[in-house]
Design a protein around this nucleic acid. Structure first.
Length: 275
DNA sequence: AGCATTACCCGCACGC
DNA sequence: TGCGTGCGGGTAATGC
């Protein structure tokens, strides 16, 4: 479920609950969730670390750790990517593990942080250098680095279809399938439109649309659809996503669905015309 | 060569 | 019961 607004919501929710807590023990319930070190090494390294801060970069959640053992060197970060079906839940430590729990961090204060992931696509990294995982990401769409001028130039530096390009995390980091469809509709641009054919005015519209849908998603605490995640209400405000056959809220034409780059794609055929 | 595109893959649960 | 689908992204093959 998580795109940028959902991860942002999770980070914001967990931050006050996690800061200052110490990780007593890691219960690793599925080894392949880890790309970094070995399971044994992971458990050993994470034990006794204190959570100093909880942040987000693109769709990654970052727990900034610091060892309480004096002089034991490096500060580690725990990076979590929820992929399609992952979620992070804070529970009482006495609660029984739930189905699909992949990693449980037992914390000081009687709480546990559970990484639950039905489809097992999610990943967790423990690293002293987050850049080795985050280094290739494009700019944050809600940062000052992302501007209409940057977007226009970047679009023209490529010759790719808009939707696959916007989904490419090395181009721009944080958009997923829902928010991309929503942004393209808001900007009145067709997902197959070639990036270097976009005018300055259209790049500006796309910039505004991307920021607008992400901000709205965050304001509504994300979108929670299917059986995954909970709380967010942005799913009640989709303009095109999951609205095949329903009227466009702008012009009334019926929303169409087709496949672009193996992803379901939703457009208004009247608002988003491919020249 | 260097891009861009396409196909396929990874567990699992859900809707039809 | 069976089959298509998916809030993500990596890899490999193929195409310009």
């Amino acid at each position: 479920m998580p795109e940028l607004p959902e991860v942002e919501t999770i980070a914001r929710t967990l931050r006050p609950q996690l800061i200052g807590k110490t990780i007593r023990e890691a219960d690793l319930r599925w080894n392949r969730t880890l790309a970094a070190p070995s399971p044994r090494k992971f458990k050993e390294l994470v034990k006794g670390q204190q959570i100093k801060e909880v942040t987000r970069r693109a769709k990654y959640l970052i727990l900034h750790l610091s060892s309480l053992r004096s002089g034991s060197g490096q500060a580690f970060s725990l990076l979590v990517h929820l992929r399609m079906s992952g979620d992070l839940l804070l529970r009482n430590s006495t609660t029984e593990p739930a189905p699909h729990d992949r990693l449980i961090l037992k914390l000081s204060g009687g709480k546990s942080l559970a990484f639950n992931d039905t489809r097992k696509f999610g990943r967790v990294w423990l690293t002293a250098d987050p850049q080795e995982i985050l280094g290739a990401l494009g700019p944050e769409p809600l940062s000052a680095e992302f501007t209409p001028a940057w977007l226009y130039t970047a679009l023209h530096a490529k010759r790719r279809q808009l939707k696959p390009l916007l989904l490419d995390q090395t181009f721009l980091a944080g958009l997923g399938n829902i928010y991309t469809d929503e942004a393209l509709h808001l900007a009145k641009l067709h997902p197959l439109r070639l990036s270097d054919s976009v005018s300055r005015r259209q790049a500006e519209a796309l910039y505004e649309a991307i920021q607008s849908v992400l901000r709205e998603g965050i304001r509504r605490n994300g979108a929670s659809i299917d059986w995954v995640y909970r709380g967010g209400e942005f799913q009640n405000y989709f303009r095109v996503y999951d609205r095949e056959g329903k009227p466009c809220l702008v012009c009334g034409a019926l929303i169409q669905k087709f496949v672009v780059g193996q992803r379901g794609t939703h457009i208004c055929p009247n608002c988003q015309v491919l020249k």
